[in-house]
């Protein structure tokens, strides 16, 4: 076989399957958008999230009443045209308070995910890449994981003290282990690939290998996890506030609204139902979007 080809040594290079079709530069992005658009769950999730993000952002403009103004004449009113979602025991408009509460809840989620993501990705990359440190980091993470995350968040708040910032830190810390585990696992598989080996054979420095070869290839699971953790963090933060460990009255965080409403559950169901519904919808939205992203970013699904 080879001998016959040897004779035609001066044959020009002809690729058996030429790929000279002009591929657009952002084929990856286009492909990704196509997949997302086909995923109904992701669309519904995005719409829900966009609704809450926009209404929270525009809260000062679209809120019909001042957020903390009390009006005892209107206390514990059911949903009506004047007060769409009713009023609380001090006559404050629930819709208004939910708009402002959304800002707190969403921001808490954002900060918690940012903090836990940064710490988690750093630790995960170190554990996955520098194998000697792996056992120490992972045993520490395993210890953290033995606590249910809400229980750990409560413990952290108990140490740091009650308050919004501390609740946020507590939620962030309790979300770190899942980031570490996911990132470490991905890094472990990427560091054994031949292109990382090729980079090492070239003498590329470790931090450059991490930055250029490993991080870009583990970014998909990180994005997916961050989306899912976003919802989880909002839920945890709301749970902490509900337990009275997070946002303090009169601060209108969603969890705190549910907490206040629970005392009036038999007289004013709207005080708990609507903030609770908001929490549920936002978490649902993030989960739907996260699942959609997972399917869209998975190279195997076409």
């Amino acid at each position: 076989m080879l001998k016959s080809i040897e004779k035609n040594n001066n044959l020009l290079f002809v690729d058996p399957d030429p790929l000279d079709i002009k591929l657009s530069k952002n084929s990856f992005l286009n492909n990704f958008l196509n997949k997302i658009m086909k995923n109904k769950g992701a669309i519904i999730g995005s719409v829900i999230l966009l609704f809450f993000i926009i209404t929270s952002a525009l809260a000062p403009i679209i809120a019909p009443y001042p957020v903390n103004e009390m009006n005892f004449d209107d206390s514990l009113q059911g949903p009506s045209l004047e007060h769409w979602l009713g009023t609380d025991e001090f006559g404050r408009d629930i819709w208004t308070r939910m708009l402002y509460g959304g800002r707190v809840s969403l921001l808490m989620g954002l900060f918690a995910v940012t903090i836990s993501g940064t710490i988690g990705v750093t630790l995960g990359v170190i554990a996955g890449y520098y194998r000697k440190l792996d056992i120490y980091i992972m045993q520490f993470i395993d210890i953290l994981m033995t606590f249910p995350s809400l229980l750990m968040a409560i413990a952290i708040v108990a140490v740091l003290g009650v308050g919004l910032t501390n609740a946020m830190i507590a939620v962030a810390i309790s979300a770190v282990p899942s980031f570490v585990r996911v990132v470490r696992g991905s890094v472990l598989s990427i560091r054994e690939t031949e292109y990382v080996e090729a980079a090492r054979a070239l003498g590329v420095k470790n931090w450059r290998i991490i930055g250029k070869h490993i991080l870009p290839n583990v970014i998909s699971p990180i994005i997916i996890l961050a989306t899912l953790e976003f919802g989880g963090s909002i839920l945890s933060a709301a749970a902490l506030s509900f337990l009275g460990l997070g946002a303090q009255p009169p601060n209108p965080e969603w969890g705190a609204l549910v907490y206040v409403g629970k005392s009036f559950l038999s007289q004013a169901w709207w005080m708990t139902l609507f903030p609770g519904l908001a929490i549920m919808l936002v978490v649902l939205g993030f989960n739907l979007l996260g699942d959609g992203l997972r399917d869209a970013l998975d190279p195997k699904s076409n």
């Binding site: 690939t193 031949e194 292109y195 090729a198 980079a199 290839n217």
Partner: peptide, 12 residues
């Protein structure tokens, strides 16, 4: 390397 599909970073 042996496998030309694994030896090039797909993101570069």
């Amino acid at each position: 390397f042996q496998d030309p599909y694994a030896s090039l970073n797909p993101k570069m």
